[in-house]
Design a binder for these strands. Structure first.
Lengths: 200, 200, 200, 200
DNA sequence: GATGAATGAGGATTCATTCAT
DNA sequence: AATGAATGAATCCTCATTCAT
C-alpha cells in the first residue's frame, strides 16, 4: 500500500483533514455537486466518520467559513493594532484582505462562490462575521472623519460596504480569471483609489 | 396584455409567464430548492410545457439572466448616450444600476444570489454580459482620463471592477437587509465617493 | 421458479397492483426487510410510481390494513344482518373471521404479524378498527344477555376481547403451522366452546 | 462524575443490567427503533461491551424472551403442582399468566409487541416455549376430560389455544389501554367464562 | 401545442459491529 | 474485561425529464 506524499494522509487530526478535503472538493466541483463520499475519500476517512465531527454536509460548509472568518478577523485586528494613521489602517485592511484570500484559492472559491448558495446562507453570514468586518472598516472611517483626515460628508457605513464590495469583486474576478496573477499586488492601487475618495 | 402583477395568469405569452414565475420562485426558495413543478404551477402551465420553451431547469436560470442583462445593457447605453461629461456618465451608470435592481427585488435576488451557484456559472456570465458591462465602465474611465477629468494614475479596469463591486455589494446588502429602504437613494452618495476617488 | 399467472401484471389499476404486491412482499419477507424497490418490481411499476399513490413505505402497510379492515367490517355487518338469534350471530362472526383470513394467507400474515411492529402501530388500529370490531361483538353479547340467552354475570367487553383473542390466536397458529389445513373448519368447534361458555 | 443511586448502576452483573436495559428500551421505543448505543447507555456500559455478552442486537431480544419464558414455565409448574382439581388448575394458570405479565409492563410490551416482528421470529418461539405452554394447558384439559370434569366433545388443543388467545389478547389490551388497571383482577372473570365453556 | 403520469438514477445519512488500545 | 472511535454497507425517497395521448 504505497501511501505516498500525495492524497489521503493516514494520520493527523481527522477533523482538520476533513475540513481541508471539503474545502478542496467544494472549490473544485461546487458544494451541490460535491458528494460526501468524495470528501471522505479525499480526507482518507470513511463516509461515516465525517458525521462524527460534523452534523451534515451543510455543517461542513458553514464550519469552513466560520473558522476562517474568525481567524481572519483575529489576524486583521492584530495587523491593524500596529498601524497608526487612519489612511494607513484602511491600506492595511485592503492589503490583508487581498493577501489572505490570494494565498488560498480553494478557500477563496468557497467563500466567494460556494457560500452564496442561498439567501438564507448569505443572511447567516452577513449578520455575523461580515457585519463584524464591516464594523471594523466603519469605525476606522468614523475615526478618520473625527480627526479630519477623511471627508465628513461621507456615510461611514456606505464607505465600509463600498470597500468591502471592491475587495469582494477583485477576489471574485481573480478566481474567475483564466490568467494567474498576484492578487495582493493590486492592494496599493485599490488603496490609492479608495483613499483618494476618502481624503478631505 | 393582461399580465397582471399577481399570480398565475391564464392567458398571454407562456414563455414570458414561465420566466417570470421562475424568477419569483428562484428568488423565494433558491434555485436548488426550487422544483420545476413549482415553477410550472406558478406559471399556470403543466410541468411538461416548460420543456417546450426551455431545455432544462438550468436553462431557465441562464435565460432569466441573459434577457435581463441584455435589456439592461441596452437601456444603460440609451441613458448614457444622452449624458455629457464623464463624471456625469459615471453618475448615470451608478444611478441606473441601483434604480433597475432596486425596482425588482426578485430579479435582484436571482442575479445576486441564485446566479452564483457555481464557478462554472459565474465564469459563464463574467465572460460575457458582465465583461461587457465592465467594458462600458472602463471606456468611460479611459475617456475621462484622456480628457484630463480623471486621474491618469488609476488603472481603468481596476476602477471599473471597483465600481461594479461597490454596486454589487450595495444591492446584496439591500436584499439581505431586514429593513426596507430605497436602494436608488444611495446613488448620489456612492457617486460622490467614487467620483472624488477618480477626480484629478 | 414458476412465475405463472401470479407476478407483474402489466395493466390494470396501478394502485391496487401496488397494494397487492406490498401485501405479498411484506408477508413473504416481513415489512422491515422488504425493500420498496422489491414491491415496485412485484407490482410492475417504477419505484417512484409508488410515491404517486402512497406517502411512504409505512403508508402502504397502514393502507393495506385500513382497506381490508373496512371491507371486513362491512361484510361482517352484511352477514350478521341476515341472522337471527344471538348465539347464531356469534357463530356467524366466528365463521366470518376464520373464513376471511383463512382465504388469503398473505393478508393474514400481514395483519397478524407485520402490523404489530410497534406499540404506536398497534395503538393506532386498536383504537379504531379493532375497537369497532369489539363493539360489534360486545353489543351482540349485551343483547343476548338482555334477552336472557347469555349469562348476565359475564362482562360483555371481556367476552368480546376473549372471542377476538381466540380467533386471533387461531389465525396466528394457522399461519405458523407447517401443515396446511382449513382454518374455517375450526369455526364450529370454536363456536361450540364459546357459546357453551356464554349460555345461561 | 457523581453517578447517584438512580439509573446506570456502576456495579453488579453487567449481563443482567444489559438485559434489563434492553427490555426497557425495546418496550419504550420498539426493537427496530432502539439503538444498541441507547441500550448501552441505559445499562451504563460501553457499546462494545454488549458484544461481549451477546452475539448481536437480535440476540438481546431472543434472550430476553427465552429467559423469561423459561422462568415462567418453571414457576407455572411450581404453582400448578400444588393445585388439585382440573378446573382449579386452569384457574391457576390463568391467574399466573395475568399476574406475571401484569407486574412488569416493559416485559409485557416486549413479549406482546416487540417479539412479533417477523414470521421467522414468531415461528421460533411458537415451536418451542409457546408450544410447551400450550402442552401444559392441553394436558390439563385432556386429564379433565378423562375424569369427566370437562366436556369430551371439545378438542383439547383448540381449547388450549383458545385459552392462550384470550390471555394474550387481554395482556395486549392492557398494554394498549390508556387507563391503568389491575390486569390480574380479570383472572377470575376469565376463568369463569372459560370454565363454563369447558364444564360438562 | 399541451398535458401530467410515469420514470429511475442518484446520494446523504444511519447504525450495527469491530478491534486497537 | 472494557472501551468507543471508526467503519462502510445499505436504502428510502426526490424530482428533472420524457412521451403517449
Amino acid at each position: 500500500m504505497t501511501e505516498l506524499v500525495e492524497a489521503p494522509p493516514r494520520s493527523g487530526n481527522k477533523r482538520a483533514r476533513i475540513l481541508r478535503a471539503a474545502t478542496d472538493v467544494f472549490a473544485q466541483v461546487g458544494y451541490f455537486n460535491a458528494r460526501v463520499s468524495q470528501v471522505a475519500k479525499a480526507a482518507g476517512v470513511a463516509d461515516g466518520t465525517i458525521y462524527l465531527y460534523f452534523q451534515n454536509k451543510e455543517d461542513l460548509l458553514i464550519t469552513i467559513f466560520r473558522e476562517h472568518a474568525q481567524s481572519y478577523l483575529v489576524s486583521l485586528e492584530g495587523e491593524l493594532s500596529g498601524v497608526t494613521g487612519w489612511g494607513e489602517r484602511i491600506r492595511c485592511a485592503i492589503r490583508h484582505h487581498l493577501t489572505t484570500l490570494g494565498s488560498d484559492r480553494a478557500l477563496a472559491v468557497v467563500s466567494q462562490v460556494e457560500l452564496r448558495h442561498t439567501l438564507k446562507f448569505m443572511s447567516l453570514f452577513s449578520q455575523a462575521e461580515v457585519a463584524e468586518y464591516l464594523n471594523i472598516l466603519r469605525h476606522t472611517v468614523e475615526r478618520g472623519q473625527a480627526e479630519g483626515a477623511f471627508r465628513a460628508s461621507l456615510h461611514p457605513q456606505l464607505v465600509a460596504k463600498s470597500i468591502f464590495g471592491i475587495l469582494d469583486e477583485l477576489v471574485t474576478s481573480w478566481i474567475l480569471s483564466e490568467k494567474e496573477y498576484d492578487l495582493a499586488a493590486q492592494a496599493s492601487h485599490v488603496a490609492d483609489f479608495v483613499l483618494h475618495g476618502l481624503m478631505a
